[in-house]
């Protein structure tokens, strides 16, 4: 992809995100957020994040190729448990990577 189309893409996301951040601050008092929409928005982060995590863990080589000796699966399970218990980004990243490296060393 050319640098120019990358910049165009970044600009599109940047402007779109800015508009969403500004939205209700700018139009305050003229339009109310519909109840169903505000209820639905609560479920956007868990849904989107899970649909990013699961395929990335299950398919280590990208597009839809399941492999059985995949060290990412135990690493992700441990990381999820750590995140649940500690709520700490640092520990989740550190121990998740440690398990990945550990399983790779044992398997090789």
């Amino acid at each position: 992809m050319s640098d120019l189309s990358l910049w165009g893409m970044f600009l599109a996301v940047g402007i779109g995100t800015f508009v969403m951040r500004l939205s209700f601050v700018e139009i305050y008092g003229r339009w109310r957020i519909p109840t169903l929409l505000s209820r639905a928005l609560v479920y956007v982060p868990p849904s989107v994040l899970a649909s990013l995590v699961l395929p990335a863990v299950v398919y280590p080589h990208g597009q839809g190729a399941f492999v059985f000796d995949n060290p990412q699966i135990p690493a992700a399970i441990v990381a999820a448990w750590i995140a649940w218990k500690t709520r700490s980004t640092v520990l989740t990243l550190a121990l998740g990577m440690a398990v990945l490296w550990g399983v790779k060393v044992i398997a090789s």
């Binding site: 982060p45 868990p46 994040l49 899970a50 990013l52 995590v53 990335a56 863990v57 990412q72 690493a75 992700a76 990381a79 999820a80 995140a83 649940w84 709520r87 700490s88 980004t89 989740t92 990243l93 998740g96 990577m97 990945l100 490296w101 790779k104």
Partner: peptide
Amino acid sequence: WSLSFAVPLSFLALLVPNI
């Protein structure tokens, strides 16, 4: 170092408190 795995791990760290 397979650091690209840090990306799904970061998402996981963001996901869990959302549940």
